[in-house]
Amino acid sequence: MLTLFLGLVVFLGVHSVQALLPEQRQLWQARWGAGAYKGLYSLLSLAGLVLMVWGYGEARHHPVVIFEPPRALVHASFLLMGISMVLLVAAYWPRNQIRARLRHPMTLGIKVWALAHLLANGTLADLMLFGTFLLWAVVVFRSARRRPVAPAAARPASITATVATVMLGLGVWALFLWGGLHAHLIGVNPLGSMRA
């Protein structure tokens, strides 16, 4: 659990700087240069990610079960993951109305992702990992909403880009859920418990 905890502190700490300490971030960039700052940011992010994956993997070998999620919550988590994937795609797909309206779909997507996994998993490691991500996303989203809105893009959002965003997000969701991508990347088949 300590490895997972350290990974969460490093990974989410690094990813909190821009939202929670923007002035300090600017000072560091001015002092070290943008390239050095981005390099350090990337190295710390990677180190935190490795520690999280390693720590979570270790914890899965000796799970401490807090509760057994009811089947209805597991089904609800599948639907929430569809929404999460659409939001995550919306953060990167240009000119979609979802990003134009919500402004921070990535953080919202992480919130929904974390909530979905909290509903479907009941071990101590799951509560630590996904609960921490959920709390982090709530704090960062609130902070980001307080910042001034950037000027609108020269080309307005379009319905075509929005439909493409939704379709791509749902496609990625289907690949994870039914296409075996979750089992291949994470080592867990989310539909396994449904077939028991």
Rank of each mutant, 00 (worst) to 15 (best):
L2E: 11
L6Y: 09
V9P: 04
V9F: 15
V9W: 10
V10D: 00
V14P: 06
H15W: 08
S16K: 08
V17S: 06
L21Q: 14
E23F: 11
R25L: 06
L27R: 15
Q29H: 03
R31Y: 14
W32I: 02
W32M: 10
G33E: 08
A34P: 12
A36S: 12
K38N: 11
L43V: 10
V50Y: 14
M52H: 11
V53M: 13
G57K: 02
A59M: 10
R60D: 04
H62G: 03
I66H: 12
P69Y: 09
A72H: 11
L73W: 11
V74T: 06
V74R: 02
A76E: 02
F78E: 07
L79V: 11
L79E: 10
L80M: 15
G82D: 01
G82Y: 13
I83Q: 12
M85G: 00
V86P: 04
A90Q: 01
A91Q: 15
R99V: 03
A100P: 05
R101G: 00
H104N: 15
V112F: 01
A114L: 05
L115Q: 09
H117L: 02
L119A: 02
A120F: 00
A125P: 03
M128T: 07
L129F: 00
F130K: 06
G131K: 00
T132V: 11
F133R: 02
L134T: 03
L135F: 05
V140W: 07
S143V: 02
S143P: 09
R147C: 05
V149W: 12
A152V: 08
A153M: 12
R155H: 08
A157G: 15
M167E: 05
L168Y: 11
L170T: 00
W178P: 08
G180L: 06
L181T: 00
A183M: 12
H184R: 15
H184F: 14
V188L: 11
V188W: 08
P190Q: 04
M194H: 10
